[in-house]
Amino acid sequence: MSASAVSYQPVPGSKKDDAILVVDGIRRAFGGLVAVNVDHVEVPRNKITALIGPNGAGKTTFFNLLTGFDAPDSGTSMFNGRRLDGMAAHKVARLGMVRTFQLTKALSRMSVIENMRLGAAHQKGENIFRGLFAPMWRAQEAEITARAEELLARFNLAHMRDELAGGLSGGQRKLLEMARALMVEPEMVMLDEPMAGVNPALKQSLLEHIKGLRNEGRTVLFVEHDMDMVREISDWIIVMAEGVVIAEGTSDDIGSNQAVIDAYLGAHHDSDLGGS
């Protein structure tokens, strides 16, 4: 197993020596339903952390709360020591925390390469006055395009470069969305089920990409239902059920955790948690 060694307490809310993201008392209710009620969670820097849990556990809602797409009823979250709660989504992204969506958001009537270029941060030509004069942004555009093409090749999308994104298959859209998020060069990547609908062969290479992100110094937090994938790449696993973090640990810790087994058996009996 390739996971880099970690040694944190395998208990919910455990301290990490170098946490990039610290969440405190975040709560979000939809009417009477408490979708997220996370007491304390720390996400370790430059590690791959998996967020797992049965359907409806609140994982996506938790992502939304962290990335500014939804506002918590109460609680705080800190990213690199900066408060995130109440911050607009685009500002969170500019701080270096970029997310993808469980339901992919390909920009259908734009080409694949335009989707990619959009991701790049600090574009001179995104200012309306400079945009008017192509010489002011053309050089940067060429750099961005080169970087985009490189990423497209890595994600097996190079041949789709000039197709409209709306014409991609479901799995290809997942790939495009992840590649596009990487165009931002984020410090932390939040992936909501990046592997859903991606064929097994490509899944394997996706796993390598995610590991590659860690090697580049980035932090990854991802939601995934496929336990084999989770086990293979994550350094740390956080388990949510009914909005609450019920367990944390390495895949070995989680596999033998009674609370986790109960939570999953309550929801879907056929889940293979494996482990120890």
């Binding site: 992204a93 997310r99 030509g125």
Partner: peptide, 21 residues
């Protein structure tokens, strides 16, 4: 221009544009 690209991305899906900063 890249400015126009952002407009088009908003037309397609404004949450995607937000998620990219």
């Amino acid at each position: 221009s890249p400015w126009g690209r952002v407009l088009k991305s908003i037309r397609e899906d404004e949450d995607a544009a937000r998620s990219l900063g």
